[in-house]
Design a protein around this nucleic acid. Sequence first.
DNA 1: AGCTCTTCCTGAAAGC
DNA 2: TGCTTTCAGGAAGAGC
Length: 308
Amino acid sequence: MPELPEVETIVRGLRRLLPGRSILDVRLGKTDFIDDPVQLGESLPGCRIESVTRHGKFIAFELVRSVPAASADAKTAASDVASGEARIHLLVHLGMTGQLTVRLAADSTPPHTHATFVLDDGRELRYTDIRRFGRILVLADSQVGEFRDRLGADPLEISEAEFARRIGTRHARIKALLLDQRTLRGMGNIYADESLWRARIHPARQGDLLTRRQLRALHRQVRSVLQTAIRLRGSSVSDYVDAEGIPGRFQLRHRVYQREGEPCTRCAAKIRRIIVAGRSSYFCPRCQPPPRERKRAHQSVDAIKRRG
DNA sequence: AGCTCTTCCTGAAAGC
DNA sequence: TGCTTTCAGGAAGAGC
């Protein structure tokens, strides 16, 4: 499943292929995962791709209209985006099984290809997504700031102090916090588990019960794991491939993810799997000791004491 | 308000 | 063997 390193790898690939190209046509299959398919089809043709960036797990294409929208009639003129505003943004989230690839128009189209952006150089940008957990939306230039602000900090850019402020003040379990895109943008299940193992923190620990030392270790390991994964072009589990259809190699470095029952590479204890925040969470029961089972009242007293 | 649970979807794998 | 059931997971929205 694509998380920050996979999306970053895809963005870097697309960045070499797309800026300068124009979108001639949009073809859609199933559209239940697209915010406004009519708007998507009407507002993109005639746009030139200026840049490709990443907001958390969203891939963002900055588009500039080089010719007037074909259907700028009274009906579509009411729409913010179609009404001739020059700069718009196409945002794509890959969900679980989404793939965004650039192929020659003549190349065969794989099943579950639900959006095809026909380019002006004989190629196509294709969105393929078996489960359709992804999302495609178009935003006016004026809406992008607000959209970004609803997401949390980028884990590669966040300072240790900001990390501690966002995580160390929260009651939720650390695994839930790492997965919450409004806290940090871009973390997913694989890198949450791998970071927690490296920082020796149990996934069910509460954010506000982590020590300063643990917060510091987690901040460091989150960044380290993500940077290493980007270097190896992401993790290919399930069906992830980058913009050129190439799989990543970080899955070979996984220490806990999908290793239930196998020995911990640090201490040889058997890796366990539990459900935290509705997600499979893999951890080493010896390196990552579980929080003590305590009654709620005792937890509160402890939390107050710890805060001093 | 803040946190957790449920739901969407498909294909792989387990179960019978 | 072959059909049926179960499960995985990102994030919106419901529920507590």
